[in-house]
């Protein structure tokens, strides 16, 4: 684990102290948010706010979940979940299929297709936001799950990753499958998919977080409160100008909004790290 050589008394303690300080800095904003989500509005508008949690945890979280801002948070969480899963599963499926075609078949326009797909690596949705909005609007997909999900599926990262993975699978395995009588579809289902399952799971974690955390896109195309996702919905709750807002409810919403992806990262830490390191290679 450790690459350094000497580890003695004071040095070790300084190391731990430094790390604990770093963690404190990183965690402080979350702690403050958590505390704010357990107290009353009165506790917050007269600074300084308390630094230890208060007794109003359930009041605030229930109000957020059931009333929320323009839409109840439970509904926004549900929308976020549908969008995140849609993006994740959609990307994985279309990428698996196209990577399989590009690696395991020789066909006309193969390299052209590869480069067409590959070019999407270069363009995050933020860059082509206005024209994409127009296309989605002209297709009548505003305020729909389809409109939320489909444009964000057009990305090459996953295709590229699966292509790299398939290239490392030994040719002999494919040959053995052919000798065993497996055609292309059987080979894909019986051999390639099971062999890729850890990579698929790792990618699932990364893409789920990516999908859940989308902000600008839902902000643009969901004008109906019932279609809001939680990440953008929280923005609608923020003050504009000097008006006062229910900070405890906003902070409860913020905690709820980050809970699913944080749980995914911590719960599947190993897969997450693997997915992260590999998708950037």
């Amino acid at each position: 684990m450790s690459g350094m050589v000497e580890k003695r008394g004071v040095g070790t303690w300084l190391t731990h102290a430094g790390l604990i300080f770093g963690i404190a800095v990183i965690c402080f904003p979350i702690w403050i948010a958590f505390v704010a989500s357990t107290v009353t509005q009165d506790d917050l508008i007269r600074p300084p706010m308390p630094l230890l949690p208060g007794p109003h945890f359930f009041d605030n979280y229930l109000e957020a979940l059931l009333t929320g801002g323009v839409a109840p948070v439970w509904q926004m969480l549900l929308n976020s979940l549908v969008m995140a899963l849609g993006i994740t599963i959609g990307k994985i499926i279309i990428s698996l299929l196209s990577a399989y075609a590009i690696v395991y078949f020789r066909f006309r326009f193969r390299m052209l297709f590869f480069w067409l797909i590959f070019m999407t690596l270069m363009l995050p949705v933020e860059v082509r936001i206005v024209p994409t909005y127009e296309v989605v609007a002209s297709l009548g997909l505003l305020n729909s799950y389809t409109g939320l999900i489909l444009p964000l599926i057009a990305s090459a990262t996953a295709t590229f990753l699966f292509r790299q993975l398939f290239m490392t699978i030994p040719d002999e395995l494919t040959e053995a499958a052919r000798v065993d009588g497996a055609g292309p579809i059987r080979f894909f289902i019986d051999i390639l998919l099971p062999m890729s399952r850890t990579n698929i799971a790792a990618l699932f974690v990364i893409l789920f977080i990516y999908g859940w955390n989308q902000y600008l896109w839902p902000l643009l195309i969901t004008t109906e409160p019932s279609m809001n996702t939680v990440i953008m919905g929280i923005k609608q709750m923020l003050p504009t100008g000097d008006q006062t807002v229910e900070w405890p409810v906003i902070m409860a919403t913020a905690m709820l909004a980050m809970l699913p992806p944080v749980l995914v990262v911590i719960g599947m830490q190993k897969l997450f790290v693997k997915g992260l390191v590999e998708s950037e290679k």
Partner: peptide
């Protein structure tokens, strides 16, 4: 290959890593 009535043993064995020994032979 499957129509030729042959069987092949590969240099790196080419066993399916996710299948048991039984399933490898039975595939």
């Amino acid at each position: 290959p499957r129509e030729r009535d042959i069987a092949m043993v590969f240099q790196n064995y080419a066993l399916y890593p996710h299948m048991s020994v039984f399933d490898n032979m039975a595939y």
